[in-house]
Design a protein around this nucleic acid. Structure first.
Lengths: 214, 214
DNA sequence: GTCTATAGCTAGATAGAC
DNA sequence: GTCTATCTAGCTATAGAC
């Protein structure tokens, strides 16, 4: 095929198709050949848009981070750090839980990905403005990230085999672990909300009195 | 080479070598050839001890879970659920942080791995015995797992490029993110401990009064 | 229980035609 | 900017000798 009048591909189309492929079949399924087939082009065509597969993967990962709402950290967000942190955590978890197969890559840190760095910058700046000392703000940003990425990755829903016999004999307390998938999803939601509120309550106990802020 | 008098390999030796390889070079580096080379045997020899590579990987993952201390949940553990949960969380994190490259596999859930199931069983049984309602105990087990696996995987220390210039212009609040590796490790420790204590404080607020337990 | 040999696949990436 | 053809390299797993 000769050069088409209008390009068949674009970075955005490729990234969207790649994310769909990873969501549907996992990270290992993301090969240049399979991705190209889904886009009805040949494998090497992708190299006109991304220099390497790593560059493509970076773009896919950062597109997920771009789904996280950061609006609550803006000037009109108000001074309620608990409320803002809660809203942000929910949006962050929603974005990651929609694409669990890519979370292991994303969790390794922001690298040089713009959306990931923008997120880290926004939450740190917000916490400092809200009155948290810089050291505490760094720790809170990190520990919230632990909890949220863990929620998306270590989902209760995905992890227990649906095999009652497995539990009966050997693991006496796990008799209810082989639940319907919907049940398990409800457990994940409940665990996330319980943990989030507990964390916010625990952090509020540590919020410094005005005179000791720095 | 003919059949050796005493076996050159054993499941344990293979698992240990596999874990070292994954720790040193990542999950992708774990191939039958590379693993066999490290053990000074040929690739196919491994199939005398494991039927498939997946079976081997399962054993490697569960060996890490076996490093987690569960003694605080035993009969002589006492009724102090906060203290037991704190000790367990630290031991769990230590085991996972020693082998971060395998955390994405391990985080997906216990599957049918004995040590992982034993851990889930122990923490749930302990919390119920300590007075938590069964639904809350399930959620607490899950949310602790979120936080701990997240701590091991989403380590602050690993994620930020050491490139001051990257931050200066675009991300005004991240000026201190390009710290020495030791600094970043200290941030991880501080974030974990802060989050753990905040979680325990927040959960304590939710501990049911004796008459309402069930 | 280890070996050699190899089947059968899939991967990322490049060269050069159009 | 997409194509076909191809290179080089890696992988899991099996067959059969010893």
């Amino acid at each position: 095929m000769a050069r088409p009048r209008t390009p068949l591909l674009s970075r955005d189309r490729i990234v969207m198709a790649a994310l769909e492929l990873v969501d549907a079949e996992g990270l290992e399924a993301l090969s240049t050949r399979r991705l190209a087939a889904g886009l009805s082009v040949s494998g090497p065509s992708l190299y006109n848009h991304f220099a390497t597969k790593d560059e493509l993967l970076d773009a896919v990962v950062d597109s997920v981070m771009g789904e996280v709402d950061l609006g609550m950290f803006g000037p009109e967000g108000g001074a309620d750090w608990r409320g803002a942190l809660r809203d942000w955590a929910r949006s962050y978890r929603a974005a990651l839980s929609a694409h669990p197969n890519i979370v292991p890559v994303l969790a390794q840190g922001p690298g040089r990905r713009p959306n990931a760095l923008r997120l880290a910058d926004a939450v740190f700046g917000f916490l400092v403005d809200a009155g948290w000392p810089r050291g505490q703000a760094t720790r809170i940003g990190a520990l919230m990230r632990y909890f949220i990425t863990g929620s998306a990755l270590a989902s209760f829903a995905a992890g227990f085999p649906e095999d009652a016999q497995l539990y009966a004999a050997e693991y006496p307390h796990l008799g209810e672990a082989h639940l319907l998938a919907e049940h398990r999803r409800a457990i994940d939601d409940g665990a996330f909300e319980t943990g989030l509120e507990a964390l916010l309550d625990g952090l509020a106990l540590r919020f410094p009195a005005p005179e000791s802020r720095g």
